[in-house]
Design a protein around this nucleic acid. Structure first.
Length: 272
DNA sequence: CCAAGCACCTGACGGC
DNA sequence: TGCCGTCAGGTGCTTG
């Protein structure tokens, strides 16, 4: 999926494209899993005008002028694309026709993603957001470092844990651990505070750079205009098992950490 | 409380 | 070719 940078890029693109547009009709082709039935979702959104589009954690939020909010979680393969009205494609889940003739399409090959609606004021009561940790780009590296102080879990698992800090997935976890020189399986309580601060500084840098490069496209991700990102060209380690470390030329290795494939340099990211 | 493992889905790819 | 196992950007639930 789209991690924080990808959802942020989609949200920024949609905010410009959708603000002021109203929803004139909704199609639900091959529906499999909305969090509520199309019968109740569709009437709620018809006729509403988009106020703004933004992101919280990895969730894309389309807020209508009256406060009604649509929340999209893209999970692994979800896409939200705005463009000219077209016929439904194979994995399209819900299509919103807008008053200027354009169309917003949510598609999701693996069907893990979902769309749900919140009445004005209800969003803040959503359990998913209530248990979500802080935004990594709106919190100091020092404060983030202190959040995992003393934890015995693998540091990568904590990066991926959305109740610790939001927005980080497998790509950006591996990339910031490499930049900070920390082995993904290191217990957080065995990593010095200076190293932890370094880790979150690097996390911020990598997220900001990824946003500026339109996100990372492995196979599914495209932005709101349907275009791929380019940050995948800047990966140091993610998906590069067996290739040479860009710093020391050692062959990159993989390990399962917190259930996820983790690629790292055994020399630059020593386990201790 | 924490962490691990599996479940949810479809498709792509590599090995035989 | 085809079948089978493995893997994939995430999260939620169950189990220990």
């Amino acid at each position: 999926m789209p991690e924080l940078p990808e959802v942020e890029v989609i949200a920024r693109g949609l905010c410009t494209a959708l603000a002021g547009r109203s929803i004139v009709s909704v199609e639900v082709p091959g529906l499999t899993r909305l969090s509520e039935s199309a019968d109740t979702l569709v009437p709620k959104v018809l006729g509403h005008t988009v106020g703004r589009v933004y992101r919280r954690a990895k969730v894309l939020l389309i807020e209508m002028a009256d406060g009604l909010t649509l929340a999209f979680h893209l999970k692994m393969t979800g896409r939200v694309v705005h463009g000219e009205k077209r016929a439904a494609h194979k994995h399209d889940r819900i299509m919103f026709d807008l008053d200027d003739g354009s169309q917003l399409v949510f598609s999701d090959m693996r069907k893990f993603g979902y769309v749900r609606s919140f009445a004005p004021g209800e969003l803040e009561n959503w359990a998913f957001l209530q248990k979500a940790g802080p935004e990594p780009l709106e919190t100091s590296p020092e404060d983030l470092a202190d959040l995992i102080k003393g934890r015995k879990a693998a540091i990568k698992g904590l990066l991926l844990n959305q109740s610790v800090v939001v927005g980080v997935g497998n790509i950006y976890a591996d990339e910031c651990l490499f930049r900070a020189g920390i082995h993904p399986a290191s217990r957080a309580d065995r990593v010095s505070r200076a190293k932890r601060v370094k880790l979150f500084s690097e996390l911020q840098a990598v997220l900001r750079q990824a946003i500026s490069e339109n996100g990372s496209s492995i196979s599914d991700y495209v932005n709101a205009d349907g275009d791929a990102g380019s940050f995948q060209n800047s990966f140091n380690v993610y998906g590069k098992k067996g290739q040479k470390c860009p710093t020391c030329k050692t062959s990159l290795e993989v390990a399962k950490v917190a259930g996820r494939t983790s690629t790292f340099c055994p020399k630059c990211q020593p386990k201790r």
